[in-house]
């Protein structure tokens, strides 16, 4: 474990806590894409299939359980909780996210570390996570003004994978046989997708103005 990876995991956890706070405090999921939340639930379920078979550390197991439980809880809130469900804007959240699932799985069938069930689902989860934010970014562009908590949620979610890239560079330089191309390339693509969001987020922070993504 290095400082970049720890910072990445904590930033990821923070993004989830900010989203939970937004939904709990405002009893609303306006500006939040249910489809992105569903994709993240699939990402965690597919990536942590080895949760009970492959013990790495207490930290690792604890975080996996937190990520799976929180992503399922958020999807449940948006789909089932009467007050939150009412604020979900399905006319804005129209990204065909099942195409992302299909494309990621297809790619994982061809590009993986080993042709085993766990490895294919792991690669699938890596590719899917890279594009999982797309429905959310599209929704932010459509919904015009973005409330602070949702903006912070997306910012921390994008920043965590950027910190992971620093972690991979650090590990590549310090560990003799460290190579993880699938996660690295996918992580760079994932972080790049946030580039324009980061730009507008920085502008809004600098001008102390409302975050607004151009349509």
């Amino acid at each position: 474990m290095n400082i970049f990876r720890l910072a990445g995991d904590m930033t990821h956890l923070l993004s989830i806590l900010v989203l939970l706070l937004k939904i709990y405090a405002t009893k609303s999921c306006s500006g939040v894409s249910r489809k992105t939340q569903e994709l993240y639930a699939i990402v965690f379920l597919a990536r942590y299939l080895d949760l009970f078979t492959d013990f790495i550390s207490v930290y690792n197991t604890f975080m996996k359980i937190v990520f799976i439980a929180s992503s399922l809880a958020i999807v449940w809130c948006i789909r089932v909780h009467p007050m939150v469900k009412r604020s979900y804007d399905k006319d804005l959240d129209t990204f065909r996210h099942y195409l992302l699932v299909a494309a990621s799985f297809l790619l994982a069938l061809f590009l993986h570390e080993k042709f085993t069930f766990l490895e294919i689902f792991w690669a699938f989860s890596i590719y899917l996570e890279a594009v999982a934010i797309l429905p959310q970014l599209v929704l932010l562009q459509r919904s015009g003004n973005v409330d602070n908590l949702t903006g912070q949620y997306v910012f921390f979610l994008g920043a965590y994978r950027g910190l992971y890239i620093l972690n991979w560079i650090y590990r590549y330089l310090t560990e003799p046989r460290f190579t993880r191309w699938i996660a690295c390339v996918s992580g760079v693509v994932q972080t790049a997708l946030y580039a324009d969001f980061f730009y507008y987020y920085f502008i809004s922070w600098k001008n102390n103005s409302k975050l607004k993504l151009p349509a």
Binding site: H12, D50, N60, K64, Y164, R177
Partner: peptide, 10 residues
């Protein structure tokens, strides 16, 4: 050291 489990990251 043994080949570190390649899935030690979240």
């Amino acid at each position: 050291c043994s080949q570190e489990s390649s899935k030690d990251e979240l």
